[in-house]
């Protein structure tokens, strides 16, 4: 709050130097010279931040939104509710939700094993988790296709099915839950679990009633990020998904297709819909995070 006011002052000073020097004669020498100069510096930083975010995020989004409404509200609505578009959106949300849940379960399990168990090659496995972050997603797609594609060496052909999408997205979003749960789990106080054991709690009860509530915020945020990422994923699903409209076509592929057949308004409209979903997901995450923080603050 205080930072805001000083930066605003700094910005105002910069914006209107003439006015400032004009009544400078009447003003006493400012007692807050130091903070005023500090305000000017943070005003500059704020300016850079705003400019950068505008160029990179806000203006393109605004332009996109404007394009999507270039045929008016009804045009936008028609584009989003076109059966194929709707099917693509639905497939995207469904598959992403499944992947998020899958990640929540398996990711937590992996984090648990990495923190609590000692085994040969643990460091290697730990490093492996980050691979999907580093690998170009199209490479992931080819890798998965070679195992689960046509002529699969293990006889599992998932290409052009929703299962294929799920596998591809699960691969890409693997690190999110693991990496958010791991540090929290490391910090968990083992005494607390032993206390629960001494009170008669079984291992499952200890996990459910003592450990899980501690991990929940990390699990939710990891799951949420995985979901948001899956919603917009393109590269990893482009080969294995098969791009079959109303079946395995995801929203990002639909957008690509609409661009190719020169329907920019349709593409923009579905993009805005995706944007809204991602934004809502992040808002919900923020809500959970701030609620957790509030509880902690209330507690301290």
């Amino acid at each position: 709050m205080t930072l805001d006011t000083t930066t605003a002052k700094g910005a105002a000073n910069r914006a209107a130097p003439v006015a400032a020097s004009g009544d400078g004669a009447k003003r006493r020498p400012p007692p807050l010279l130091r903070s005023a100069s500090a305000g000017r510096v943070s005003g500059l930083t704020l300016g850079v931040v705003v400019l950068w975010l505008s160029l990179i995020v806000l203006l393109p989004l605004a332009a996109l939104t404007v394009t999507s409404f270039s045929d008016g509200w009804s045009g936008f609505w028609a584009a989003v509710t076109a059966p194929v578009a709707l099917a693509a959106l639905w497939t995207t949300i469904l598959v992403s939700a499944v992947v998020a849940v899958l990640n929540v379960v398996v990711g937590t399990l992996i984090a648990w094993v990495l923190v609590r168990d000692e085994f040969w090659g643990k460091r290697f496995v730990d490093a492996l988790i980050d691979l999907p972050f580093a690998l170009p997603t199209i490479v992931a797609s080819i890798v998965l296709l070679s195992l689960y594609g046509p002529n699969s060496p293990i006889g599992v052909e998932l290409n052009a099915t929703r299962w294929g999408l799920i596998v591809a997205l699960a691969f890409v979003t693997l690190p999110f839950v693991v990496r958010s749960v791991q540090p929290v789990l490391i910090e968990v106080d083992r005494d607390v679990e032993q206390a629960a054991a001494s009170l008669g709690a079984s291992n499952w009860t200890i996990f459910r009633r003592v450990v899980l509530p501690t991990l929940a915020p990390a699990i939710i945020s990891g799951g949420g990020l995985a979901f948001a990422r899956a919603i917009g994923e393109y590269g990893s699903v482009v080969l294995i998904g098969g791009n079959i409209p109303r079946e395995t076509q995801v929203a990002s592929q639909y957008i690509q297709q609409q661009i190719e057949i020169d329907r920019p308004v349709n593409a923009a409209a579905v993009s805005v819909a995706l944007l809204a979903i991602s934004f809502a997901t992040l808002l919900i995450l923020r809500f959970f995070a701030s609620r957790g923080q509030e509880r902690e603050e209330k507690a301290t």
Binding site: D189, D191, V192, Q194, A195, A196, S198, L199, R209, V210, P213, T214, A299
Partner: peptide
């Protein structure tokens, strides 16, 4: 059939 008390309380914080 024991009760155990830890140095650092081991409270269930949530």
């Amino acid at each position: 059939g024991i009760g155990f008390v830890f140095q650092h309380y081991a409270a269930f914080k949530h």
